[in-house]
């Protein structure tokens, strides 16, 4: 006769074995085709349960080597313009950076092409919330989103290193999305 304690022990063993096998497959970087197939097979269940973790990159295999910003040129129907910019991180205090950490993640991902589905809603949010300079509620005619970036140069032994916290003296820019009230789609 199986008692409750034996049943609990059996259940615990099932969870232990399942958890260890699952993280051994999911958290280890893909090693071969078979491993990747196992990862793919597990993916739906882990996604649904929220227990997905994938490989722990943590500044690996290569750390980022780019500093970025996003800006928006908001044109109102009366012909005026307002320039909106994402946070300037070096200007922020440690506490502000702490409280704005999610903004850091959001704008870092928003600029990427993989996040193109988020561009329209973000521009629409700006259209709803950014006032014209006059302060009078004015309809928005067009918004242009631009990404800005500075690459961190490869260090050279015979040259001074780039300054700590990055060099923001020159930014490259690319206008990547145009929003209008009439068409919510992208106009590249």
């Amino acid at each position: 006769m199986v008692n409750l304690q034996q049943l609990r022990r059996f259940g615990a063993n099932v969870v232990i074995v399942t958890f260890v096998i699952v993280i051994a497959i999911d958290a280890v970087p893909s090693t071969c085709t078979a491993h990747q197939r196992l990862k793919n097979a597990l993916d739906p269940a882990l996604d649904a349960s929220g227990l997905w973790q994938e490989s722990w990159r943590l500044f690996a295999p290569e750390p980022d080597s780019i500093n970025t910003r996003v800006s928006a040129r908001i044109q109102f129907v009366d012909g005026t313009e307002v320039q909106w910019e994402s946070p300037d991180w070096p200007e922020m205090s440690s506490w502000q950076k702490f409280t704005h950490f999610r903004h850091m993640e959001y704008f870092d991902k928003l600029r990427n092409d993989e996040s193109s589905a988020a561009w329209g809603p973000f521009a629409a949010y700006l259209a709803r919330t950014v006032p014209a300079e006059s302060g009078i509620t004015t309809a928005v005619a067009k918004i242009e989103l631009t990404r800005h970036w500075v690459l961190v140069n490869e260090p050279q032994a015979d040259q001074p290193l780039m300054k700590i916290g990055g060099d923001s003296s020159h930014w490259d820019s690319w206008m990547f999305y145009t929003w209008t009230p009439a068409s919510e789609g992208a106009v590249q």
Binding site: P63, D64, N67, W89, P90, K97, G165
Partner: peptide, 8 residues
């Protein structure tokens, strides 16, 4: 070096 040059 790269991590310490990230401004965010």
């Amino acid at each position: 070096y790269y991590a310490s040059r990230l401004d965010d």
